[in-house]
């Protein structure tokens, strides 16, 4: 990431104020707590655009490169916006041996998207995650907080359409 001049105009000031308050509340070495700050920032803003990363860098007295290095290292941080429904297909071992790869493939096909990218309608982002601890229900798919267990390839269309339907309603 090039060290651009920080452009705050794209960032919501109310949310920035909450982020500032969080950073102020931290005790001890703040630079050491960069990952905690990024978690908070992502929780507030949904994802971590470059401007927000620069903002965090300034606030903690770090270089933009250092912050970007950390953001891109950890799979939990998103630089790109995510869909309204984060659809995670568990690709843990237990789910894999029960056919999770087929479930993932079918989900991506149905939504016409790639892993980690938002679907064209902006509703879904499909991710693969690792064991969520529900191996007894393998294969497992989660959509936001809701967990679907023992998912069969033939059921995915049905599950997704419940969420597509919700959009039509509002």
């Amino acid at each position: 990431m090039r060290e651009k001049i920080l452009d705050r105009s794209t960032l919501d000031t109310a949310l920035l104020a909450r982020l500032d308050a969080y950073i102020d509340s931290l005790k001890g070495d703040k630079q050491e707590q960069l990952i905690h700050v990024l978690h908070k920032a992502q929780e507030l803003f949904g994802h971590l655009p470059h401007n927000l990363q620069l903002y965090v860098a300034h606030a903690l007295g770090l270089s933009g490169a250092r912050v970007n290095g950390v953001v891109t290292f950890y799979s939990f941080f998103n630089e790109e916006p995510v869909g309204k429904y984060v659809t995670s297909v568990c690709m843990g071992t237990a789910c894999f041996v029960k056919g999770a790869d087929k479930v993932l493939e079918r989900t991506l096909n149905l939504l016409g998207t790639k892993k980690g990218e938002m679907s064209p309608d902006g509703l879904f982002t499909v991710k693969d995650i690792r064991c969520i601890g529900a191996c007894g229900l393998a294969p497992v798919v989660t959509i936001n907080e809701k967990v679907y267990g023992k998912v069969k390839v033939g059921q995915i269309d049905d599950i997704l359409s419940r969420y597509r339907g919700e959009k039509r309603a509002d």
């Binding site: 050491e32 990024l38 290292f73 939990f76």
Partner: peptide, 25 residues
């Protein structure tokens, strides 16, 4: 509690320590 952010290598103890210090693990 120190939060990680999803990286398998951070289970390795020296990487874990780097991560706890706010770096790439």
């Amino acid at each position: 509690i120190k939060l990680g952010a999803g990286a398998f290598v951070c289970g390795e103890e020296t990487a874990l320590i780097r991560s706890m210090e706010g770096h790439r693990g």
